Amino acid sequence: MKKILLALLCGALFMLTACGSGSKVSGNKEEKKTVKIGITQLVEHPSLDASREGFIAALKDAGYEEGKNLKIDYQNAQGDMNNNMMIAQNLVADQNDLILAITTSSAQAAVKSTKDIPILFTAITDPVGAKLVNSIEQPGGNVTGTSDTHPEAIKKTISSIKEFIPDAKKVGIIYNSGEPNSVVNVENAKKVIKEIGLEAVETTVSTSSEVKQAAESLVGRADVFYIPKDNTVVAALESVIKVANEKKIPTFVGEGDSVKRGTFASYGFEYHDLGYATGKMAVEILEGKKPSDIPVGFPENLELVINKKAAEQEGITLTEEMMKNAKIVGE
């Protein structure tokens, strides 16, 4: 009898201890504590949105779900740098447990605003050059994340211009020189353009409303368009597509999501996967790991993406050879 009473007493003490801890026990499953995550995004376009959605999906798969134990404050700066800085400051003031910054400018604003709250970035071209981390392997401080710069993506995309459009001589590039990520991408693209014997023709914009005029300014001066991973231009990509279709100018781009929207080709990857990888980092941090101990991640898979309908609209004759190793969209 004494043994039975002792066992019951131990069981009661165990339950009291479990109820007093930071997690709740439901059957054999430990519930996650409620966390607050702030998300700052410079502008809306499909690649950045996919990154955010992948991030949230990874959290959900790990047991953090909106409406239950996860509160997300998502704010978009709509391309305005003043809004961008204000959003970062507000997310810090609201004492979020973690901040996700999507794009270089958003990450820089977040880093300037706090040294205490963990910050993750995604869709970043050059995190070291942007002074977000000390190095790829050892980020240091309260910041880490994922870069969207696959080492072979720009080289393969630019090289495919000569393969698919052999008569092309000049490559028209549209970008915002105020975006640090764009400057890096364009410099890398220009090196490859020169290496393969083509000529770069540049035009810059400062807002998305200027993109159509910029594209029109390249008509007659460029044989093909190249649109890098530039948030300002990609946000108004349909303006470039309209000019490209009307003037039959093949359009190559810096990421696969823009091909799905109506440009011709790119060597790209899925931004949802990049965001998902960032979300897995967030789980590690929420469960005790320091950002400084998590190396910066990169896209793993790179594939040629071709839009069949865009090829027709831009006056490109597709061959079986061109399509045999490509992912075909727009059919």
Results as ranks from 00 to 15, higher is better:
Met85Asp: 15
Ile124Gly: 09
Ile136Gln: 01
Leu100His: 10
Asn84His: 02
Asp80Leu: 08
Ile136Ser: 04
Glu152Gln: 13
Asn90Ala: 10
Pro139Arg: 02
Ala110His: 06
Ile117Gly: 08
Asn83Tyr: 03
Phe121Val: 01
Asn76Lys: 09
Glu137Ile: 11
Ala110Asp: 07
Asn84Cys: 14
Asn84Tyr: 00
Ser147Glu: 04
Thr125His: 09
Asn84Gln: 12
Lys131Asp: 15
Ala93Ile: 08
Gln89Val: 06
Thr146Gly: 10
Ser106Gly: 06
Val133Ser: 09
Val111Glu: 10
Gln95Thr: 11
Asp116Thr: 15
Ser106Ala: 15
Ala109Arg: 01
Gly79Arg: 14
Val111Gly: 02
Val92Met: 02
Asp116Pro: 05
Gln78Met: 07
Glu137Leu: 11
Val111Pro: 00
Ser105Ala: 15
Leu132Asn: 01
Thr114Glu: 12
Asp126Thr: 14
Ile99Arg: 09
Ala130Phe: 05
Leu132Ser: 05
Pro118Ile: 02
Pro127Glu: 01
Pro118Cys: 02
Asp148Phe: 01
Leu132His: 03
Asn96Ile: 06
Met85Trp: 00
Leu120Ser: 10
Leu100Gln: 03
Phe121His: 03
Thr125Lys: 00
Ser113Pro: 00
Pro127Thr: 08
Asn82Ser: 14
Ser105Met: 13
Glu152Gly: 00
Pro127Gly: 01
Gln89Glu: 15
Glu152Lys: 12
Asn90Leu: 09
Ile99Tyr: 11
Gly129Val: 11
Ala93Gln: 15
Ile99Gln: 08
Pro127Lys: 14
Ile119Glu: 13
Ile117Phe: 04
Thr125Glu: 14
Thr103Val: 06
Gln78Asp: 14
Met86Cys: 01
Ser135Met: 08
Ile87Asn: 05
Gly140Ala: 03
Ile99Lys: 01
Ala130Trp: 08
Lys115Met: 02
Met85Gln: 15
Asp126Ile: 13
Asn96Lys: 08
Pro151Gly: 02
Thr149Ile: 00
Val111Trp: 10
Lys115Phe: 07
Thr114Val: 09
Thr114Pro: 01
Ala88Met: 06
Thr144Val: 03
Ala130Thr: 11
Gln89Lys: 12
Asn134Phe: 00
Asn142Ser: 08
Ala130Arg: 13
Met85Pro: 00
Asp126Pro: 11
Gln78Pro: 04
Thr125Gln: 09
Met81Phe: 10
Gln108Ser: 02
Val133Cys: 02
Asp116Ile: 03
Leu91Thr: 09
Phe121Asn: 07
Ile102Ala: 07
Asp97Phe: 12
Thr144Cys: 00
Pro139Glu: 04
Thr122Cys: 14
Gly79His: 07
Asn134Val: 14
Pro127Ala: 06
Asp80Glu: 11
Ala93Phe: 09
Ala123Gly: 04
Ser147Met: 01
Gln78Ile: 13
Asp148Gly: 07
Leu91Ala: 12
Thr125Asp: 13
Gly140Trp: 00
Pro151Trp: 10
Asn96Met: 03
Ser106Gln: 04
Val111Gln: 10
Asn96Arg: 12
Pro151Cys: 05
Asp94Ile: 04
Asp148Arg: 00
Asp116Val: 12
Gly141Tyr: 04
Ala93Asn: 15
Gln78Ala: 13
Asn76Val: 10
Ile102Pro: 04
Ser147Cys: 01
Ile102Asp: 03
Val128Asn: 03
Lys112Phe: 06
Ile87Lys: 12
Leu132Pro: 08
Ile119Thr: 08
Gln95Met: 10
Leu91Val: 08
Lys112Ser: 11
Thr103Asn: 02
Asp116Asn: 13
Asp126Gly: 11
Asp94His: 03
Thr144Ser: 10
Gly129Gln: 09
Gly129Lys: 13
